[in-house]
């Protein structure tokens, strides 16, 4: 009898403990993530009927489809982000291979840590560095004039190249870390066997090294793509008026024009874009979402 009571009390205490631990998690996810997105969904489907009166409708999404500036900026953001992801992958792969396989002894952790350092500096600081290098009065232009390569100052800022450069620079760490981790477990004897069987360096890379690195490639690419699509500072500061990034449109609708329903619809389009591309990437390569996210 008393045992039954105490076990009943134990169960009540355990339930109370569970409740107390669940509370912050539910408040966090409910009030800061789920309900705000529900509100954004409601907002995106409300359109102005007449001054001060709003009703349900697809007007904001239609506006997106019919206004070329909006859907072009959207498509441009998507295509440039894919391009940024590919460039980042190509640039980072040899470095990751070097860190994982070539570097020996103390060089390995040093090279690895040196990759991390720039990313402890804020995104804003990194962008400032590129602005100072690329602008008309900047370091690159100055050095080119000193070397006699050009006669006047050269403006290297405010074009698509500068935006891509800035985004690639910002994404590299998130590519190198998962790549190096994946390559670390590559068995050297497999590579040797590939050579022994008469494979050229390229064949070994294509048939052995890249397939082995695939989980890292997928994880890195997804993170780099999402960071690019959602970026704001880099396209605005390095692209200037030509930046035309979709996050800028969202900001403009919300903060500058105070047209929240339109901004909410844009927000959902951006979420849709990143979800679709990530899903397609996972499907194409047969990887799972949770493992991939954990890996990165």
């Amino acid at each position: 009898m008393s045992a039954a009571i105490s076990s009943g009390q134990g169960r009540a205490a355990a339930r109370l403990g569970l409740f107390l631990l669940l509370l912050p998690a539910i408040l966090w996810l409910g009030l800061l993530v789920v309900l705000p997105h529900v509100e954004m969904a409601i907002l995106s489907f409300s359109q102005r009927i007449r001054a001060g009166v709003y009703g349900f409708g697809f007007g904001n999404y239609l506006e997106f489809l019919t206004e070329p500036l909006y859907w072009r900026t959207f498509g441009r953001t998507a295509i440039m982000s894919i391009l940024v992801t590919l460039i980042t992958l190509v640039i980072s792969f040899p470095v990751a291979l070097y860190i994982a396989k070539v570097a020996r002894g103390a060089t390995k952790p040093i090279l690895f840590l040196m990759c991390l350092i720039p990313f402890w500096a804020s995104e804003l600081v990194r962008t400032l560095g590129w602005m100072m290098l690329l602008r008309e009065t900047g370091v690159a232009s100055y050095l080119m004039q000193l070397a006699g390569l050009t006669y006047g100052p050269v403006e290297l800022l405010y074009n698509d190249g500068a935006v891509i450069l800035g985004l690639v620079y910002g994404g590299m760490l998130f590519m190198i870390v998962p790549l190096a981790n994946a390559l670390e477990s590559l068995d050297d004897s497999q590579v040797e066997a590939g050579y022994d069987l008469g494979g050229s360096g390229f064949t070994v890379l294509r048939r052995i090294i890249i397939p082995h690195a695939m989980p890292g490639i997928v994880a890195g690419s997804i993170v780099v793509f999402m960071l690019s699509v959602g970026n704001f500072v880099t396209p605005v500061l390095l692209g200037g008026k030509n930046g035309l990034w979709f996050t800028e449109q969202i900001y403009a609708q919300f903060i500058t024009r105070f047209n929240w329903p339109q901004g909410a619809a844009f927000g959902f389009m951006l979420l849709l874009l990143s979800t679709l591309i990530v899903w397609a990437g996972l499907r194409l390569t047969g990887q799972g979402f949770s493992e991939t996210l954990r890996r990165s």
């Binding site: 009030l31 800061l32 993530v33 309900l35 705000p36 997105h37 929240w260 996210l293």
Partner: peptide, 22 residues
Amino acid sequence: AMMMLWPLVIPGVILGISILAF
């Protein structure tokens, strides 16, 4: 546990506007 990972894949601008709207 899955939902706890969500905020990492939502762009910061969207987290901002959704919380602002709510």
